[in-house]
Amino acid sequence: MKTTRLFLCLVAFLSATLAGNRADADELVRFESAPVKLSPFRIRKANEQGENLPQPQGTPLLGYLSRPQGDGPFPAVVVLHGCEGMRLSINELWPKRLVSWGYVVLVVDSFTTRNIKDTCQSYLPDRVFDAYGAWNFLSKQSFVDISRVALMGFSA
């Protein structure tokens, strides 16, 4: 009986805490990964062969942006999912928790625009460029303190 009451009190407390700290904007955003830089070796080989290398472009990506209420500027966290892709804990639970602590959160979906389903058993793209693209996107938002951005990732 005591355990049940304690559990119900805990549920009520967490519900009130999360309800009072909801993000005022959970929105789908679009941005690009940072372009992959060509290595000096690749550039030299192309020049030797008379090949014209195109300027690298970023990969179109989707992200989920959540933020605390107010004008900011707030510190931010870029969240990269693991090899299983967008799970509930990545797309909902962590953003709610981080927003309640006063952070802007950008969850990067590295798979949808690349048509990747699951990479736990196969190829995983070089996602460091996705993180830099997310940082670049956040640097253009007036409510983000770009000098205080962290990266959080899972299993990859």
Rank of each mutant, 00 (worst) to 15 (best):
26 D>Q: 11
5 R>S: 08
67 R>N: 05
65 L>M: 06
21 N>T: 12
72 G>Y: 09
122 S>I: 09
126 D>G: 06
1 M>G: 13
49 Q>V: 01
78 V>F: 08
100 S>H: 10
133 G>P: 08
68 P>S: 04
67 R>K: 15
126 D>S: 14
73 P>E: 04
57 Q>P: 02
152 M>R: 03
89 S>P: 02
35 P>N: 11
6 L>N: 12
45 K>H: 12
79 V>M: 14
8 L>I: 07
117 K>I: 11
75 P>T: 01
51 E>A: 08
147 S>Q: 12
8 L>Q: 07
49 Q>N: 12
59 T>P: 00
94 W>G: 00
137 F>K: 00
12 A>I: 05
71 D>T: 09
77 V>S: 02
84 E>C: 04
44 R>N: 14
130 D>L: 06
133 G>D: 04
29 V>C: 07
74 F>Y: 15
68 P>K: 01
22 R>Y: 11
156 A>V: 10
127 R>V: 08
156 A>E: 09
148 R>D: 12
94 W>T: 01
91 N>L: 13
2 K>A: 08
75 P>I: 02
119 T>M: 11
98 L>K: 02
103 Y>T: 00
148 R>I: 04
103 Y>S: 00
72 G>H: 07
141 Q>W: 05
97 R>I: 13
9 C>M: 11
22 R>P: 01
120 C>P: 02
49 Q>I: 02
73 P>W: 10
100 S>E: 12
146 I>R: 11
9 C>D: 05
1 M>V: 14
124 L>E: 09
45 K>C: 06
36 V>C: 03
5 R>H: 07
76 A>N: 02
136 N>C: 05
124 L>V: 11
106 L>A: 01
50 G>Y: 05
51 E>P: 00
140 K>L: 10
47 N>E: 14
142 S>V: 05
47 N>M: 12
127 R>D: 09
7 F>V: 14
79 V>A: 03
102 G>T: 04
34 A>L: 13
127 R>M: 11
77 V>M: 06
73 P>T: 05
2 K>F: 13
48 E>C: 01
20 G>N: 10
47 N>I: 07
86 M>W: 06
7 F>R: 03
84 E>T: 13
133 G>H: 06
104 V>R: 00
23 A>Y: 12
121 Q>I: 04
38 L>M: 12
12 A>Y: 08
141 Q>N: 03
87 R>E: 15
48 E>H: 04
133 G>R: 01
54 P>S: 11
130 D>I: 05
97 R>P: 02
26 D>V: 08
56 P>C: 09
19 A>L: 14
40 P>V: 08
47 N>L: 12
87 R>Y: 10
144 V>Q: 01
28 L>A: 07
116 I>H: 04
109 D>W: 08
137 F>L: 03
141 Q>A: 09
35 P>Q: 10
8 L>N: 09
112 T>K: 09
43 I>V: 15
93 L>V: 13
29 V>S: 03
17 T>C: 06
50 G>F: 09
